[in-house]
Nucleic acid binder design. Structure first.
Length: 261
DNA sequence: ATGGCGCGGTCACCGCGA
C-alpha cells in the first residue's frame, strides 16, 4: 500500500499533474492540501474514473481545503475543527485494517514570529496546541498523520538553520510544538528515519526564486508521521523533487510511504 | 543582501502563502 501527501495549491489547476503522479508512482491513497475549492467544484469525477473511487473532500472557496482520494475502501470519515474555525484544515479516515489516517493543513503563520504582534502566528500556535490535545488521547492507536505542517523541525530541514531561526516555520517555539506532538501523539517522523540526519531534505521551494533548483533554498514542511507500531511495515519513503521542476508546479512536492500491510 | 512569484476572486487590484 502506497500513501502520499501533497500540498497542491489549487486542485483544479493541477488535476492532470496529480493524476499523472498517482499513476506513475502507483499511489493507492493521497492526502491533498490547499485544494482551494468548494466540494461542489472539486473535480471528483476526474479521479473517480481513474480508479480513485473512494474519497473524502472538505473544501471552501479560495482558501485551504483538504481531500483524500483513494483506491482503498474507506470505512469511516470524520473531520475536526481547530481554533473554533470551520476552515477545512483537517479530515480523518479509517481504513478496513483499522489504520487511522489524518490529513492536516496547519496554518502558515504569517511573517512575524510573535503571538502578540501577529494574529496569524497566534492562530498557528493555538492550532498546534489543540492538535496535540486532540491527538494525545489516541496515543496508542495505529495511525498516520500526513500533511503540510508548515514546520521544518530539524537543522537540515532548511537551507540555513542559522538564518531561519527567527523565520516562521523554523522557530524554536514551532519546533518544540512539533516535537511535543510526536511525543504526545505517539508518532515518529518516518521521513527522517529513512534519510541521514546530515542530509538536507526539502518539500517546498518558494515560487519567488526563479532559480529554485540552483539556489536550493528549500524547507521540509510536509510530513508523514506514523505510530511506532507501524514502523516495521514501512518499506520506503520517497520525496519527488523533480515535480517542482514541472511546468506550472505547486511550490510543494509530494512525499510517499510504502507499507507492507 | 535583497527581492523575487503564483493562487483565487471579481477583479487589473488584493489577501494570502512561508
Amino acid at each position: 500500500m502506497k500513501i502520499a501527501t501533497w500540498n497542491i495549491n489549487s486542485v483544479r489547476l493541477r488535476k492532470e499533474q496529480i493524476l499523472s503522479f498517482l499513476k506513475k508512482e502507483k499511489i493507492d491513497l493521497i492526502c491533498l492540501q490547499e485544494t482551494k475549492v468548494t466540494n461542489e467544484e472539486f473535480p471528483l469525477k476526474y479521479f473517480n474514473k481513474e480508479g480513485f473511487i473512494y474519497s473524502y473532500i472538505r473544501g471552501e472557496k479560495s482558501y485551504n481545503g483538504v481531500a483524500i482520494l483513494s483506491k482503498i475502501p474507506i470505512k469511516k470519515k470524520i473531520f475536526y475543527n481547530f481554533c473554533g474555525l470551520n476552515d477545512a484544515r483537517h479530515i480523518q479516515v479509517v481504513l478496513d485494517n483499522s489504520i487511522i489516517i489524518h490529513n492536516f493543513y496547519v496554518p502558515a503563520g504569517g511573517d512575524i514570529p510573535d503571538i502578540n504582534k501577529n494574529p496569524k502566528f497566534k492562530h498557528k500556535v493555538k492550532f498546534l496546541k489543540e492538535m496535540i490535545d486532540f491527538l494525545k488521547v489516541t496515543k496508542k492507536k495505529s495511525k498516520i498523520l500526513l500533511g503540510d505542517f508548515n514546520i521544518a523541525p530539524m537543522q537540515n530541514d532548511v537551507w540555513s538553520h542559522k538564518q531561519l531561526l527567527n523565520v516562521v516555520s523554523h522557530t524554536k517555539l514551532e519546533v518544540d510544538y512539533f516535537n511535543e506532538l510526536l511525543d504526545k501523539a505517539g508518532v515518529i517522523d518516518i521521513t527522517r528515519e529513512f534519510f541521514n540526519l546530515e542530509e538536507r531534505i526539502y518539500t517546498w521551494w518558494s515560487y519567488r526564486n526563479r532559480n529554485w533548483a540552483k539556489s536550493d533554498r528549500g524547507r521540509r514542511l510536509d510530513h508523514i508521521l506514523i505510530s511506532e507500531s507501524l514502523k516495521g511495515f514501512i518499506q520506503e519513503v520517497k520525496l519527488y523533487k523533480s515535480l517542482r521542476g514541472e511546468k506550472n508546479p505547486s511550490d510543494h512536492i509530494p512525499v510517499s510511504i510504502a507499507l507492507n500491510v
